[in-house]
């Protein structure tokens, strides 16, 4: 299981999709889950919304959108066999958010659903003790933007702290143990090469490490301006090119000014990346900023190839 976490808009969904495509390409059966009923994957792959049952995005790649209502029902009724609680407390669309917030249930249920997927076997058996090959080789969790999605990872412990006994407690403990298992669970932190996102990523990584109950697989720095020059030899010509362009004026000078700006942007990005590397010392990979406005499956596959250098 890979949890893809990061601040709003940094590219969590794009990274999740690219990772999914990469795994699928390598013949692994992958599924991407989204929380809070989001349907970004369907939009990225130009498909109909997948809903709460896994839907196909590409060969070997599925997606699932975890809808709070359906997940609560499934969790309470099917997993915990508490139909009465569900009927009495959670059926109402206003009561459900209230109870979920007060109890911290919605985050727990999202992670719980992910654990269910991990428990599914090819032969249809299910549960912590089920044997045989997994139905999914890789489960990617495209987390919601709020609070870095950290609350997702905290939710089992939080639930254990309030309940202390009972089926809810036991279930939360199973989830916590699965998250803590380095062999099974990892976190990918996504950020941009900018001041605020980098600071928040450092903060998030530090917090995760201090609590020590989930393994950080690595950091993806997304949307990095690519270098202007593709090799040192061309880069060495820059001073001369610059002088000549400014002398020529007109379009040549404009092109020099644009390149100057790109070089400065690139330098700033490199400084931020260096700060990340030095402070955290985690595996780190850069994803280039693509010029396309709306990324399609082809662009995602391109980013997937870049990520392929990683694992």
């Amino acid at each position: 299981m890979l949890f893809v976490l990061g601040k709003g808009g940094v590219g969590k969904s794009v990274v999740s999709a690219s990772l999914g495509l990469l795994a699928a390409e390598r013949g692994r059966r992958a599924i991407i889950t989204e929380a809070a009923g989001a349907e970004t994957m369907a939009a990225l792959f130009d498909r109909e919304p997948v809903g709460y049952t896994p839907g196909r995005l590409a060969t070997n790649l599925q997606a699932l959108s975890i809808q709070p209502g359906a997940a609560v029902e499934e969790y309470l009724v099917r997993t915990l066999k508490f139909r009465l609680v569900y009927e009495m407390v959670f059926r109402n669309r206003f009561v459900e958010p209230f109870m979920s917030a007060v109890m911290g249930l919605s985050d727990l249920i999202t992670v719980g659903k992910v654990m269910d997927l991990e428990w599914e076997r090819v032969d249809g058996s299910f549960g912590p003790d089920a044997e045989g090959p997994n139905k999914y080789d890789l489960i990617i969790v495209d987390s919601p933007a709020t609070g870095h999605g950290l609350s997702l990872l905290r939710s089992p412990q939080a639930m254990m702290d309030v309940t202390r006994v009972g089926p809810l407690f036991n279930n939360a403990r199973l989830i916590r143990d699965l998250l803590a298992d380095e062999q099974k669970t990892g976190v990918v932190l996504v950020t941009l090469a900018e001041d605020m996102p980098v600071s928040e990523t450092i903060q998030a990584a530090t917090e995760l490490r201090e609590r020590g109950n989930v393994h950080i697989s690595g950091i993806v720095v997304n949307g990095v301006v690519p270098p202007v020059f593709d090799d040192p030899a061309t880069a060495e010509c820059w001073d001369r090119v610059r002088r000549q362009g400014l002398e020529l004026g007109g379009a040549a000078a404009e092109s020099v000014r644009d390149a100057e700006r790109s070089l400065r942007d690139r330098n700033r990005a490199e400084e931020h990346i260096a700060r990340l590397r030095e402070t955290l010392g985690l595996p780190l990979i850069e994803l280039p900023l693509l010029s396309k406005r709306d990324l399609d499956a082809k662009a995602l596959a391109e980013l997937g190839t870049v990520l392929g250098a990683w694992s």
Partner: peptide, 18 residues
Amino acid sequence: TYDAAVEQVWDEHRRRTR
């Protein structure tokens, strides 16, 4: 190499104009 550098500067210009 010099002409390649000019072309790469130009690509950057095209990208930003776009």
